[in-house]
């Protein structure tokens, strides 16, 4: 799983929380344009692993390289710069509930000082995820599926190199999950690296019909390539 130009690389990574080791000696490489699923039982550490991948957590040992940079050695502003290159769809969406959807989706552009790109991009993006009509609603007024699509729109508005999604279909019905998957596959076809944590095996099977995806399984503190059952 190695390679010099990988966008995200984990090498011999361990993570402990409260004295308990969540995983150890974990290796992972995401090549540019690749599509990965991360599966595993609840509590295996999928969300933690994703957080290591976008620099919200630091490994207890081992090395995490984000775009070739050692995450542990990055200054705080350096982490902010890296996050602008990684769009994240959080399990609980993470919106600012007092702002309308349009401002939430445009927030990454605003904090990066690229407000001038907002006008055209925002309309197109809201149209792409089918939320133009909800642009002025606040997140609490949206349904679970609408929130997930809005989170995806916010994750891609900066045109990041990597999309990381944590259980993006966890709170939506089958039809909506297919729609979200289609959007993620479209992004991958545009050259984006995609990493999705999910326990929805049907979603993975469907995706493999449309894209060449690798499936990684996090279990018993180890990360393995999933077998032919998928």
């Amino acid at each position: 799983m190695g390679g010099g130009n990988n966008v995200i690389e984990l090498e011999g990574v361990a993570y402990s929380y409260g004295g308990a080791e969540l995983f150890a000696q974990l290796n992972l490489s995401l090549a540019p344009g690749s599509f990965h699923f991360l599966t595993g039982p609840s509590g295996a550490g999928k969300t933690t692993l994703l957080k290591l991948c976008y620099g919200e957590l630091l490994a207890t040992s081992g090395q995490v390289r984000l775009f070739g940079e050692d995450a542990a050695a990055l200054p705080r502003d350096g982490v902010a710069m890296i996050r602008r290159r990684i769009g994240v769809v959080h399990q609980d969406c993470q919106f600012l509930d007092h702002l309308p959807l349009s401002e939430n989706v445009a927030l990454p552009l605003k904090v990066a000082g690229r407000e001038d790109e907002t006008d055209g991009n925002l309309d197109d993006l809201l149209g792409w995820v089918g939320l133009k009509a909800q642009a002025n609603q606040t997140p609490p007024q949206l349904s679970g599926g609408e929130r997930q699509r809005a989170a995806l729109a916010r994750a891609v508005i900066m045109s990041p190199d990597v999309i990381i999604a944590d259980e993006p279909t966890g709170n939506v019905d089958w039809e909506m999950s297919q729609r979200l998957l289609t959007l993620l596959v479209e992004l991958n076809k545009m050259g984006k690296t995609v990493l999705i944590a999910t326990h929805d095996l049907n979603l993975i099977r469907t995706a493999k019909n449309h894209v060449s995806a690798r499936v990684l399984r996090l279990k018993d503190r180890k990360l393995q390539l999933a077998g032919a059952e998928l």
Binding site: D77, R83, R84, L107, P108, V111
Partner: peptide, 15 residues
């Protein structure tokens, strides 16, 4: 929580 969200989308501390 607001600060966490702003950080997750790439806001620097000074912002």
């Amino acid at each position: 929580q607001v600060i966490r969200v702003m950080r997750l989308v790439g806001a620097e501390d000074t912002y």
